[in-house]
Amino acid sequence: MLSRKFKDLSHFRQTEERGYRLLPLRFTALNSERYVVSNMVGEYLVLGRNLIEDLVEHRLVSGTSLYDDLKSKHFIYDEDSQAALPLLGLKYRTKLTQASHFTGLHIFVVTLRCDYSCPYCQVSRQTDDKMAFDMSKETADRAVDMVFLSPNPSIKIEFQGGEPLLNFPLIQYIVGRAESLNETFKRDLRFVIATNLSFLTDEVIEFCSTHGVDLSTSLDGPASLHNKNRPRPGKNGHQLVVENIKRIQRRLGKHRVSALMTTTLESLSQVRVPA
């Protein structure tokens, strides 16, 4: 490992006279000889220990490919790069611009109840008869108020669970309240329900059509794989999700529903490679 003992400031003032100056950087060991060198704007290089020592001791030679890489990625600057500091500042401000808008995505876990028992699920799932694990209207009111405290001009509210359609009345309430508040705030307001589609009804589809709510679901592959990854009573999860995806596409359009897969060990042997 590189020595962590700091040298006196006078040492660095003397080495700065050797052609270039260092800009803020950090390094992390990959192993005993290779390090990732990175900076505040996300640029990085993988360097050997000896090259890092050459870099900080100002022993690098101008005109080499490494010198040019370090210069272009804002690790060093010299008399030929007077714009380096303003450009580094511009990149850093751009990187932090999103922070000034705060978050645009707000996730509402409206219930922990679910009819599935997926082994990879990260949620503390409850059986679908345990109503005590539903979000209350009081909590929903406070959460919606907090959403509009964000200065972001684009707001997306995503309903998750458990299976959020098991508490569909609360979804309806939250969408209505958010739309009402947005008459004042004038945000680009969007909604999505992340659902396994087991409880999709005509009422749900009509509501999504009226309020512009998109749907997101899970599809892990063919029936044997999907039903193993995502077991439910009846063992027909794959059939349900495929039929309901097609149902949404017919009623709302293909762009209004998306399907994601979770990769597992069982998935790896079933990947189809395009011819």
Rank of each mutant, 00 (worst) to 15 (best):
M1W: 00
S10I: 14
S10V: 10
H11C: 12
F12G: 07
R13F: 07
Q14C: 06
T15E: 11
E16Y: 05
E17H: 02
Y20A: 08
Y20T: 02
T28D: 13
L30T: 01
N31M: 12
N31H: 14
Y35N: 09
S38Q: 10
M40I: 14
V41L: 10
L45A: 13
L47K: 13
G48I: 02
E53I: 13
V56K: 08
V56F: 10
E57Y: 01
L60C: 03
S62E: 13
T64V: 07
L66A: 05
K73N: 10
H74R: 05
F75S: 03
Y77R: 13
D80L: 10
D80M: 07
S81Y: 13
S81P: 09
L85T: 12
L88R: 02
L88I: 05
G89I: 02
L90T: 03
L90S: 15
K91D: 04
R93V: 09
T97Y: 10
T97M: 11
F102W: 12
L105G: 05
L105P: 01
L105A: 06
F108L: 08
F108N: 00
R113L: 04
D115F: 00
Y120R: 02
V123F: 02
V123R: 02
R125N: 01
Q126K: 15
T127P: 05
T127C: 06
M131E: 07
D134H: 01
M135G: 04
K137G: 02
K137Y: 09
K137Q: 06
E138Q: 04
R142V: 00
A143Q: 14
D145N: 08
M146W: 03
M146R: 12
L149C: 11
N152L: 01
P153D: 04
I155R: 03
K156W: 00
E158K: 02
Q160H: 15
G161T: 11
E163P: 03
P164F: 08
L165K: 00
Y173M: 04
V175T: 10
G176E: 11
R177M: 11
E179P: 03
S180A: 11
L181I: 13
T184R: 11
I193Q: 03
N196W: 08
L197G: 00
F199Q: 14
F199H: 13
T201N: 10
D202I: 08
F207W: 06
C208H: 01
H211D: 01
H211Y: 14
D214P: 00
T217R: 04
S218E: 01
L219N: 08
L219M: 05
D220L: 06
G221Q: 05
G221P: 12
G221A: 07
P222W: 01
S224P: 10
S224H: 02
R230N: 02
R232Y: 00
R232A: 15
P233E: 08
G237T: 02
Q239P: 00
L240C: 08
V241W: 05
I245Q: 01
I245K: 09
I245S: 09
I248Y: 13
G253R: 11
K254V: 13
H255I: 07
V257S: 07
M261N: 11
L265I: 11
L265A: 15
E266A: 15
L268T: 13
L268F: 11
R272Q: 15
A275D: 15
A275N: 12
